[in-house]
C-alpha cells in the first residue's frame, strides 16, 4: 500500500510537469500555425513561478473561504483522475475505480471554477460561471455517449467489468467491431475530439473566459497562488482528458511490435503513450483552436447537441447494427 501511495505522489508530480510541458508545446504549435514564433516551451513553468511569487487579491465582497478553497479542490480533483487512467501501462488503481468515477471527477474542476467565480461576487465572473454551466450541458452528452458506446461494445462481446479502464484498454474496441461498427467508432471518436476543447475551455468553446467579451470571466478576480493552482489544474486536465481519449480509442502499445519485454517494453509503451498524447493535444487543442473562432454562448449547446451528439448517436446505432449482424 505504501508503494502505491508513493506512486500516487510520483504520478501527481509527473502530471503537473507534463501538463505544463504540453501546455508549452501547445502554445508553440498554435504560434507556428499563426506564423508567430511563440513563447519558449518552458514559458508555462515561468508563468506558474511568477504567479506563486505574486500576492493574492481577494475581492472585498467575495465569499473568502470558497474563493480560496476552489482552486485547491480543482487541482486535487483533476490529479485524482490520473491513478485511475492507463498512462502507457495498466492504471495504478485499476481495480479500485472505473470510467464512471473518472467521468464524475472530470466534472469537478469545472464545478470548482464555477463556484469560485460566483464566490468572487464579480458580475463578469458570474456571467462566466453561467456560461461554464451551459457549456457543461453541451459537452457532457457526447462524452457520456462515447463511454457508453465503448462499454456496450465490450459487453456485447461477452467481456465483464466493461467500465473498468484496465479492461477497456486491454481490449481495443477496433478489434471487437466489424466494418460497420468501426465506422460507428470513428464517428464517436470524432465527436469525442470535439469534447476536448469544451472540457478544457479552449477555442471555439472558450466562452466562459472570453477575454474580449467578459474580460476573463470566471478567472477575472483570481491572482497569485490561487490563479497558479487553477493554471496547474488546467494543465493537468489536459493530460487527464487526453489520457481518457487514449484509453477509450487508442490503447495500443508498441512493445509487441518490436518484440520487447520487461522494463524495455514498459519504457517503449510509455514513450508511445507520450507521442499519442502529443497527437491528441495537437488535434484536439492546437489545431481546432487555430482554425476556429469563438462561438457565441447561444451557439455552444446547439452546436454540441446538433453535431457531436447526432454524430455519436449515429455511431452508436452503427455499432448496434454491427453487433446484431
Amino acid at each position: 500500500m505504501m508503494f502505491k501511495v508513493l506512486l500516487v505522489v510520483v504520478i501527481s508530480l509527473f502530471a503537473i510537469v507534463m501538463g505544463l510541458l504540453y501546455k508549452g508545446i501547445d502554445r508553440i504549435f498554435t504560434a507556428r500555425m499563426q506564423s508567430r514564433v511563440g513563447p519558449p516551451v518552458i514559458q508555462p513553468f515561468r508563468d506558474v513561478r511568477k504567479l506563486l511569487v505574486k500576492e493574492s487579491i481577494v475581492p472585498e465582497n467575495a465569499v473568502k473561504w470558497l474563493f480560496n478553497l476552489m482552486p485547491v479542490l480543482a487541482l486535487i480533483s483533476v490529479i485524482m483522475i490520473l491513478p485511475y487512467v492507463p498512462m502507457g501501462m495498466a492504471p495504478l488503481l485499476e481495480t479500485h475505480g472505473d470510467l464512471i468515477l473518472v467521468l464524475y471527477l472530470l466534472i469537478f474542476p469545472s464545478l470548482a471554477l464555477m463556484i469560485g467565480g460566483f464566490a468572487s461576487s464579480s458580475p463578469y465572473a458570474a456571467v462566466g460561471g453561467q456560461r461554464e454551466m451551459v457549456k457543461m450541458m453541451g459537452y457532457e452528452f457526447p462524452l457520456v455517449m462515447a463511454a457508453i458506446s465503448v462499454a456496450w461494445l465490450l459487453r456485447s462481446s461477452g467481456i465483464s467489468n466493461v467500465f473498468s479502464l484496465a479492461v477497456i484498454s486491454g481490449n481495443p474496441v477496433w478489434a471487437l467491431a466489424g466494418p460497420i461498427g468501426c465506422a460507428g467508432l470513428i464517428m464517436i471518436f470524432l465527436s469525442m475530439l470535439s469534447v476536448i476543447p469544451g472540457e478544457l475551455g479552449r477555442a471555439p468553446f472558450d466562452v466562459s473566459e472570453a477575454d474580449s467579451e467578459i474580460a476573463g470571466g470566471i478567472l477575472l478576480e483570481y491572482s497569485g497562488r490561487n490563479l497558479a493552482l487553477f493554471y496547474l489544474a488546467d494543465a493537468v486536465k489536459t493530460i487527464a482528458v487526453a489520457s481518457v481519449v487514449i484509453a477509450l480509442f487508442l490503447p495500443y502499445g508498441i512493445s509487441g511490435f518490436f518484440g520487447l519485454s520487461g522494463m524495455a517494453a514498459l519504457a517503449a509503451d510509455f514513450i508511445f503513450y507520450l507521442a499519442k498524447l502529443l497527437c491528441i493535444v495537437f488535434i484536439g487543442l492546437s489545431f481546432i483552436g487555430v482554425v476556429s473562432g469563438r462561438l457565441r454562448i447561444s451557439q455552444v449547446v446547439p452546436v454540441y447537441w446538433k453535431y457531436p451528439v447526432m454524430v455519436s448517436l449515429t455511431g452508436l446505432l452503427l455499432i448496434a447494427v454491427d453487433t446484431v449482424l
Binding site: 505522489v9 487541482l75 479500485h96 464512471i100
Partner: peptide
C-alpha cells in the same frame, strides 16, 4: 460492470491534498 473502493479513494484524496 465496474468497481469503486471508497477507502482507497479517500487515501488517494488525502495524499494528493497534501501535495496540493
Amino acid at each position: 460492470l465496474g468497481s469503486w473502493s471508497p477507502l482507497i479513494f479517500l487515501l488517494c484524496f488525502a495524499t494528493i491534498s497534501i501535495i496540493v
